[in-house]
Design a protein around this nucleic acid. Structure first.
Lengths: 218, 218
DNA sequence: ACAAATATTTAGTTTTATCTAAATATTATT
DNA sequence: AATAATATTTAGATAAAACTAAATATTTGT
């Protein structure tokens, strides 16, 4: 199997969790199911092309230019996933393999028009954010207090507070982190608000709202 | 540039005009902008795989299996062209290059669903027919007499008759072969019929209808 | 800080697609 | 039918990606 430069760029990007950290030769080799020596060869080449920063024995990271390429691939991948689910009856767990191929198609007009055709979606079918043409992510995790517009729905995630009253509140309302869907219903002047969980509307205080975080899905 | 097996299959198919004729090594080389010796190497390989029939010095043709692959590529290419024009605001003269990439994407479900999404189109934006999943073409060139349903539009093409009255008829009605658009309006029991040409409806005899051929575009 | 374990690179080999140039086969011309 | 022109194949060279195994650097554990 012959791997493309784009495949290497993606691997470096994903191993660095999109944060442009340095990743090791072995990590890249393992991820790509190839040998470390092959990775060394390729990252030297990527370095020559100005796509990656490579210091022998110190690992690789992407240059700004390399990141742009990676983000463009992520953008294309996720837009195609939306297309497959919304227009071609794919389910969210079927799309990855095909999007993996489609993301390599080269045409700026194609991507721009696809984006427009889909109504400029912010997230893919897995809820992952779609970077803009310029490579920027919309912030998808927001504090319930003051940051979430009425009508928005999302999933409860990571909570700062672990005090007894707060955990009791979660328990009482059947909220489990990572999978409970919330809809913002109404917001009061004092920051307290109404949310809908599992068809029931409940009122929560501003104090609790300040500690609940929502991963926006729509 | 490194050419894929699929690229070779396409070249052989197109040079043979889709009729599975034998094509020469040099013709393939010229079409693909590569050297004859490279072609020899590849067609040997295709022959080993059961995709092509190769007799040294006698040229290549596709096996039945090879033809299936070629038709599947044509099908994908043309479906994607329809998609680009109908859904993504491409014009018909912009689509080729992108479709050239998209046709290599491998997913049966993708093609089936795309076909469905587009409403099972019969022709691409250039008016070329789209083969079915089984590799069959709908006949797109039909005799005006008895073969064309009311409402159908198409382009006047190849005429059998070259008698003076017939040519006079064409001239009088401003019909030029290859680009005049016709719409079938009404058909009489005796085979004479009304057609619309350039916003004018004219009546033609069954004799003339038997000699006019229409390339269906819609 | 040293030795052992692990990670990375280098050197040299293999594979594959391509090319050039020479050799051979086919086709065209007289 | 013989020769010239053209087409095709073969043999061997080059380039690129990937591998193995050995060499070298870094990290870990005591």
């Amino acid at each position: 199997m012959t791997l493309s430069e784009e495949d290497y760029i993606k691997a470096i990007y994903h191993l660095g969790k999109g944060e442009n950290t340095t990743v090791s030769t072995n990590a890249v080799a393992e991820q790509m199911e190839t040998k470390p020596s092959s990775v060394t060869d390729m990252i030297k080449k990527l370095s020559d092309k100005g796509v990656a920063n490579y210091k022998p024995y110190k690992g690789v990271s992407l240059t700004e230019y390399g990141q742009k390429i990676a983000l463009s691939l992520v953008r294309k991948h996720r837009l195609w996933e939306v297309f497959l689910v919304e227009n071609l009856n794919f389910s969210w767990d079927e799309v990855h393999e095909v999007a993996e191929q489609l993301e390599h198609i080269k045409s700026e007009k194609l991507v721009d028009q696809l984006d427009k055709h889909l109504g400029f979606p912010q997230v893919d079918p897995h809820g992952d954010p779609i970077p803009s043409k310029k490579g920027e992510f919309k912030k998808t995790i927001k504090k319930l207090l003051n940051e979430v517009p009425v009508g928005t729905s999302g999933i409860c995630v990571g909570v700062k507070d672990s005090s007894t009253p707060f955990l009791k509140f979660l328990d009482k309302n059947d909220i489990s982190l990572g999978d409970t869907v919330l809809v913002m219903e109404k917001e009061e002047f004092d920051g307290s608000l109404n949310i809908k969980i599992k068809e029931k509307i409940i009122h929560i205080s501003n104090q609790i709202a300040a500690n609940l975080y929502l991963k926006i899905t729509e």
